[in-house]
């Protein structure tokens, strides 16, 4: 079980949280996604290692960007 924390730019409301959560929870092996809206911090837990390119692609697919 691994956990990774990301900073996502542009989330402004509860719907944004759900857009990002829906995309990430469909990644293979993802078991939990939590989002702290005020800070833009997203934590994804998975039972297999998810690489940064894969996570970045999912975030962008949801319509958002990863912080540098």
């Amino acid at each position: 079980m691994t956990s990774r924390e990301l900073r996502v730019l542009g989330m402004t409301c509860a719907h944004c949280v759900n857009f990002v959560t829906e995309e990430l929870e469909h990644l293979p092996g993802a078991t939990a996604v939590t989002v702290d809206l005020p800070t833009g911090t997203v934590t994804i837990t998975s039972d297999q290692d998810l690489g940064l390119p894969q996570l970045q692609a999912a975030i962008e697919e949801a319509g958002y960007d990863l912080a540098d």
Partner: peptide, 19 residues
Amino acid sequence: GIEIDRDKLIAHLRPVRKN
């Protein structure tokens, strides 16, 4: 508690339109 102006609202609509 999160404040958005016109520009941020327009930016917010990109993911809304997608999802």
